[in-house]
Write a protein that binds this DNA or RNA. Structure first.
Lengths: 151, 151
DNA sequence: CTAAAAACCTAGTAAATTACTTGGTTTTTT
DNA sequence: AAAAAACCAAGTAATTTACTAGGTTTTTAG
């Protein structure tokens, strides 16, 4: 399945951007420092995020990246789609040619799971994450959020 | 995340077993032939499935594997857990030490997604798959099912 | 107007994982 | 006794992933 560390990194970086980028653009060097993701790796991820129209870039000193839309309008599924190409758990990437050119025994199972995951992640915006409402809304203590935001 | 080809192979093989193993045990050589999975790889998977008490083995000629429970009582999540260890999308395997020993920004998101996937796959039994009710019950034409079962 | 900060780009590489191979042994049936 | 099967351990090829190296271009601040 396409749900790897790459996607996690991308969501984390976008969340960092949502938290720290209200006024000025945020440089990848800053995100790299805070989230401990290699700068050059971030560059590669943000190239994809930009192609996916999720962020805008500002070049030159004082530049960096900005969210291309507001927090409420950027969903986790979009981020993962942008960097991982797809959230797909089938073997045949949904083509249905997994067994001698026909659908394999479990094709529909994986297809349905894929859809399920995509639906789940499509319902969660960056705003939800900032406001601590990831998924079912697992509790996160107020001071943990503070620590994470203020570092 | 732990949702790889290994898990898919395991579910496919177990489904093959459910379909072909009503009377006699099914040898891995048979499954290997039908599903095009390397025999030795199947052996490794079935060692784990046996440790997970999902199948029983019968040694000697005419031997093979049998489901350890009936189709209704074996769920996809159990199969994947047995071969992939866990269906976990967090970076820290649920430990919550992903960022300087604290939970990372997106920990709860991945935790919730993990739970979601696990719940989904826990609701689908081998019997459901045999009867073509994977997940939301995507339609599969009757003759496709025939082809798959009768090969 | 120049130095520096940033994005932007390409290619390569190290590490990890995955799928598979090899070459056995043990058990049990015919 | 031969053969069919499970069972086992170690190694390997292929792929993917995360990261590094080494640039260029753009733009701002001084």
């Amino acid at each position: 399945m396409k749900l790897t560390t790459r996607g996690r990194y991308a969501v984390t970086a976008m969340l960092d951007l949502a938290i720290h980028g209200e006024n000025r653009p945020v440089s990848l060097a800053d995100i790299s420092g805070r989230q401990e993701i290699s700068l050059s790796y971030l560059e590669q991820l943000f190239a994809k995020l930009r192609r996916g129209a999720l962020v805008d870039s500002v070049r030159g000193p004082g530049g960096g990246y900005r969210l291309a839309h507001n927090r409420e309008a950027i969903f986790v599924a979009q981020i993962i789609d942008a960097v991982d190409e797809s959230v797909d758990v089938t073997n045949c990437q949904g083509k249905g040619n997994c067994h001698h050119g026909e659908v394999c025994l479990t094709h529909h199972l994986w297809q349905d799971l894929s859809d399920q995951i995509h639906d789940f992640l499509s319902g969660i915006s960056l705003a939800d994450l900032v406001n601590n409402r990831g998924g079912k809304g697992a509790a996160r203590s107020a001071d943990t959020v503070q620590k994470l935001i203020l570092q």
